[in-house]
């Protein structure tokens, strides 16, 4: 499996973007995340892997406080982005989410035109002074989402009319349009065919130049292909976290090893 990522990567190992300490998440009485500590680096793709139900999505959703929208969900612990506690009372979760973009498992474009989909975030955050400004933001986001060439002639067409892979790249462009610093992706390719998956993976690799990307994935090949760091979750615990190459070639924990070799599903 390690031969899949032969390309050497120049990882900038220095700055920590997100630091989480002692994070616990409860859904009512279910203890979904148990005392997780993790440091996520800037300009890096970090993959979360693990069997389903182990809490990958839950932990990811802590990072932009999406769990606040679930009534029964309770988060404790300390999560900082650039050293600022995001669960501080003074932090507005709505503002935070503009800074920490999110892409979901199923492409979920709004029932609006392609243009309006991308312009949605910039409009609500007042990022454009005028129409020309907004046009520019939209174009830049669509270029970053690697979908500009495919849609530039039909920006007024509904976003829901695109193919699955195009929709997902549109959603990435939409998330990028608010100029986030961190991009969270929850199984962004699980609803896509292999070709669309390839396009999105290529895009993720490019996004690493500007953002800290955290991606949840079911596919270990995908984690190996796109990430520099990998975290393995099991039953709500963070079992092992380290260099992707390290995790896949030389796992320290027996649970990681059996998951990677296909014994825990």
């Amino acid at each position: 499996m390690n031969d899949m990522r032969k390309i050497e990567r120049d990882v900038d190992m220095n700055d920590v973007k997100i630091s989480a300490k002692g994070v616990q998440v409860y859904y009512g009485t279910t203890h979904a995340i148990k005392d997780v500590d993790v440091l996520i680096q800037d300009k890096t793709v970090t993959a979360f892997i693990g069997p389903s139900g182990c809490g990958k999505s839950t932990f990811l959703r802590c990072l932009n406080r999406m769990n606040d929208t679930i009534d029964i969900c309770r988060v404790t612990g300390d999560i900082r982005i650039d050293g600022d506690d995001i669960y501080d009372k003074r932090v507005d979760p709505v503002q935070l989410r503009a800074k920490v973009g999110m892409v979901f498992q199923k492409p979920n474009p709004f029932p609006k035109s392609i243009y309006d989909n991308v312009a949605y975030g910039p409009r609500i955050h007042g990022m454009a002074k005028n129409k020309a400004d907004l046009d520019e933001i939209v174009e830049r986001a669509l270029r970053r989402g690697a979908i500009w060439d495919e849609v530039k002639d039909r920006l007024d067409a509904p976003g829901t009319g695109l193919s699955g892979g195009q929709q997902q790249r549109l959603c990435i462009a939409r998330a990028v349009a608010t100029e986030p610093e961190v991009l969270l992706m929850d199984e962004p390719c699980s609803a896509l065919d292999p070709i669309a998956t390839g396009q999105v993976e290529e895009l993720i690799d490019e996004l690493r130049n500007d953002y800290s990307v955290v991606i949840v994935t079911h596919s270990m090949q995908q984690a190996a292909r796109v990430s520099q760091k990998t975290a393995f979750f099991h039953l709500g615990n963070l079992v092992e976290y380290g260099e992707t190459g390290q995790i896949f070639t030389n796992p320290q924990d027996p649970r990681t090893e059996s998951y990677i070799s296909g014994k825990i599903g």
Binding site: Q95, A98, F104, N108, I124, A175, T178
Partner: peptide, 18 residues
């Protein structure tokens, strides 16, 4: 209306009424 629509909008930093 699918929850995914709401998630998408909240994820972009929209408020409830927006």
């Amino acid at each position: 209306v699918p929850q995914a629509m709401r998630d998408g909008s909240y994820g972009l930093g929209a408020t409830k009424s927006e």
